[in-house]
Structures are given as structure tokens and as C-alpha cells.
Design a binder for these strands. Sequence first.
DNA 1: ATGACCACGCATTCAC
DNA 2: GTGAATGCGTG
DNA 3: GTCAT
Length: 330
Amino acid sequence: MGKRKAPSRENTPNSDFCEFLTELAEYEKNVSRNIHKYNAYRKAASVLSSHPTRITSGQEAKKLNGIGEKIAKKIDEFLQTGKLQKLDNIHNDSKTTAINLLTQVTGIGPAKAQTLVSEGITSLEDLEKHKDKLNHHQLIGLKYYHDFQQKIPRNEIKQIENLIRGHLEPQIHLTICGSYRRGKQQSGDIDALITHPNYTSSQPKKKQNLLKNVVTALQNCGLITEIISLGDTKFMGACKLDKNSITRRLDIRLTPFDQYFCAVLYFTGSDMFNKQMRAHALDAGFTLNEYTLRPVGSTGVPGEPLEIHSERDIFDCIGFPYKEPQDRNQ
DNA sequence: ATGACCACGCATTCAC
DNA sequence: GTGAATGCGTG
DNA sequence: GTCAT
């Protein structure tokens, strides 16, 4: 996913509430720099978006998990007046709107946006005039601002996948994860996972150039056009299918062979699905993360990682009915 | 009343 | 110069 | 901002 959040669709009976809660969330993240309030507002929006019936009072809303005193009050205000005073003020504040805009450039977060605005830089045009204030990542974000706003059609990702696979040694495994793997018709970015049987968590030094070699090969074939960051295990950058294509955000991660399926599961998502599944794992006496599945002893100390040979293994071990990737959207 | 709220790779800046 | 801290983005 | 302690 790119920077643009698109939380709840338009069809729920409470979508108007979700909309203003999401706006408040953005405000708390970008302007107040309070990530926890941001998450609180998003949680509230999420619970409302999946509530089947129209909420008609703050009191009724307050029964839902994630909605407390303050949001209940805001729902009442919205029901009575059709708007929120706090939101009106935010819309009319130029500093706030500027920060929200700059924050859309990848690499510019709340802190950088704040300093830029305090220096009088409030638009993309201003950024163009002050490139000296931007680091490498932010320069790429500016250069491809419009490209990165565009969703990527499924078919284009499929072609990129084939192109990448064609440039990998046969022993390297590749899975494109994220919303693409969940079957979505379009995605915000491309999230590729690779592994190699000779690279394991116990032999981490082996193949330390593997990712860099892959990136170099993909640069040479013209697919990768920009590098945002590149370490031993994670590449972030941009790619372009051909001359007339839009430039796309591409991430590639190198995972140890023995952790590949936990990683594939994790990076396929969705967030909510991962949360559910981790919770189920805990209930079943396991702890699951992006690396391993481990039994939790009565002492609460995790044991040795279980050997996993497929994504399905993970479901089986914790007694969670298998779900195809396309059924993991929520 | 008060602390938790995901963990982590990479780039960059800070503190020494 | 080195290690710690911060910013940012990721599912 | 909300929840759990």
C-alpha cells in the first residue's frame, strides 16, 4: 500500500462517521504527532464500518469496542449539526492542510512536514524550489508524486512478477505478497518476498550479497529505476515495466528459507487477518510472528520454532481453518 | 490515575 | 569515528 | 482517545 489510506468503503450505514473519524485520525498522526490517537480513531472507524445497523446516538455508539466518551460526544454533535466544529477548524487551517499535503510525499513524515511548513514550504512547487532540503528518499517521493498516487492494475503486477522471476536463479523462490496475493484487482505497491535454500536463520551470513545481486540484475534489465534504500535483507525502490509505464513502488525482502512461510503469511495480510490469526495462535498456546511459530510453555516463555514447510502448516499447527489468500481481506 | 497501544530494516542525525 | 536515537515506512 | 489495570 502507498501512503494514501483508504479505510472504509462507502456502503456501510455508518460511513459518514467513519469518514470524519478517519480525518481526525490523519490529523492526530500528521499534525499532533500522536500515533496512538491516530490508531484509536482508526479503530473506532473500523468498528463502525463493520457495524451492520445505523448508529443513532453517541450513547449507542459507546457500546462498541474502541468508542468512548469523546467520540460518543462527537457522534452526537455530528448527528445534531451534520458536521464537527473541530473538523471545520482543521479544514480552514492552512498550516494543517499544508502538513497533510507534504505528508503525502513518501519519505516526508509528520516531523519533516512540520519543519518544512515552519520554513514556509507548503506546496509541491515549493518543494521543487527547495530540493536541497530533501534527502534521497524524499526526492524520489517528489519526483514520482503523481505516479505513486496511482493504483497498480493486477495485470501489470503479474507482468512485473514474470519479469522478475525471469531474472532470478532457478533456486530462488519468489512470492508477490500484499493485496495482490489476496486477489485484489489493483494494489498500492508491489511487495515481493524471495528466499534461497542456502540462506537460513542459522546460516545468515551465507548469501549476504543475494539481495544486492538480484537488485543489480533487475536494474540492468531496466525494471528497477530507483533505489530508496537497500540493505542485506530489504530493498525499497521503484520500477517501471516499460517506457510508457507508470513508475511503481517496489519492495523486495530476502527471508531465511526456514522462515519463508511465516513471512509470506505475514506479508500477505491483511492487517486485520494477521491480528485475528495471531490471537488465535495465542489461544492455542503458540506465538506467531513474521519469522516463526513457537509453542508457549506454561511459564510463558516461547519454545523453539516449529518446522514449517508450507503456509498451510501454520494453520494446521494452531488449528485455524485454512483460508485462501483471497479470503484474508478481513 | 496511569501505562500500553507491533516490531523492525534502513537512512540519517544526534551525542559523545 | 562510533553507537544511540530518531524518522519513516511496511504487512 | 480508549481500554485495562
